[in-house]
């Protein structure tokens, strides 16, 4: 299991991921985000089946959708992952790239500003805004002026 990267490292690696994708002109970049509730200290010893059942029950109680709506959510960090979605064969050849970072709730705004920059720069294969109509209009206007 790979360790989480710092945010700076994550962005550098993500930019590299986008760049290699651009160079090969194909492939996928898969990003995911979720609330991080996993606590390594809780998993120190493997619990007995009874304990597991209890835990599950507790989890279910916590997971009650209506309960979670009525009580405010306790703050938790967000886990951000990025991979190049290589399959098992790619994994064997060491082509699979997996990155992850953890963002604290108060750092989210700053993180997402940078994230947007990196994504905008990286996703250059998408269609740019269509400006042909506006250009045609401008041309027509210029013509009108020239005639007048």
């Amino acid at each position: 299991m790979s360790k989480h990267l710092s945010q700076d490292e994550f962005f550098t690696a993500l930019t590299a991921l986008f760049t290699t994708q651009k160079q090969t002109q194909k492939g996928t970049v898969l990003l995911s985000q979720k609330r991080l509730t996993y606590d390594p200290s809780q998993k120190a010893s493997s619990p007995s089946p009874e304990q597991q059942q209890q835990q599950q029950q507790q989890d279910e109680e916590q997971e009650d959708p209506f309960l979670s709506l009525s009580t405010p959510l306790p703050p938790a960090p967000i886990l951000i992952r990025a991979t190049n979605a290589k399959s098992q064969e790619g994994r064997k050849e060491g082509k699979k790239v997996k990155l992850s970072t953890v963002v604290q709730p108060d750092e989210l705004d700053a993180f997402y500003l940078r994230y947007a920059e990196v994504c905008k720069a990286g996703m250059s294969g998408l269609k740019p805004r269509d400006r042909t109509k506006r250009k045609a209009k401008e041309k027509a206007r210029r013509k009108m002026k020239a005639q007048a």
Partner: peptide, 10 residues
């Protein structure tokens, strides 16, 4: 709940 973003290039 998780949110995934897939950017695919071909």
């Amino acid at each position: 709940t998780r949110i995934t973003t897939k950017y695919h290039l071909s």
